[in-house]
Amino acid sequence: MPIARPTSLDDAVAVLADDPAADVLAGGTDAMVEISFDHRRPRHVLALRRIDELRQVTTTSLGVRIGAMVTYGQIERDHATLLPGLAMASRTVGSPQIRNAGTIGGNLGTASPAGDALPWLLAMDAEVELASVRGTRRLPVAAFVTGPKRTARADDELIVAVHVPAMEGPQHTAKLGPRNAMVISVACTAVVLDTAARQVRIGMGAVGPTPLRAPDAEAAAAEAIDWDALRADGTAIAAFGQACAAAASPIDDHRSTAEYRRHAVGVLASRSLTRCLAA
């Protein structure tokens, strides 16, 4: 059967067990471009659109489980209070048309270094839930994304959800590109302040083969912040940006230069931290 249109997760993983080479189709915003430009010729498609359980956002005491087929548009419209950083990042993705189609699971599956949801998921220590007929497993985003457009997903596994731990504290995301819409990030950041644990966490996108954390910058900023007042002085905020820039590993390509990306990610890191503290 050239296209499988299952309505249950069990049926979907059974399709992949039978044919691990099947093309998994989520929102189509990456896959259809590859097909239209003849970079991919689908022989067997597994379409996920009809599986309701992949479209749910559910909350538990531990956090939030975001189904793989939840779109950026859903996050932006319906879950901005629950997932503020992800909603901010979602609003910067493509256009309304792209946000109505593109999915969080698809962003993880494509694993582009510039994937807009990934820095926030990394900063939140989110975990990817994978399912196959062999069972389910969870991997931290940092272990799941292994390189540019490479992941730890086995061929017979489906990304079914991403788990985000509950966290108190302000969040901010920033993205740099030639305009406010329809751009692939030149650099992007997601900063979250875990006020309970008194930790600063940053995810940086488009400045390395995978989204990156900046552990030294995070630790120094956590020391510098007055956690009771949620304030830090300008020197500490600037130092955070410099340390994040130093932790980046950018390249030259047709969208920007390594030098500019390193500078930009430092500016965005300082800005995101400033906005978190002002919030």
Binding site: R5, G28, M32, I35, S36, V45, P96, I98, N100, A101
Partner: peptide, 16 residues
């Protein structure tokens, strides 16, 4: 009911 780019929809998946 959602605005999308039809170039990014696989026609065979638009069934239903």
């Amino acid at each position: 009911g959602l605005l999308v780019n039809s170039c990014c929809v696989l026609a065979a998946d638009a069934v239903d």
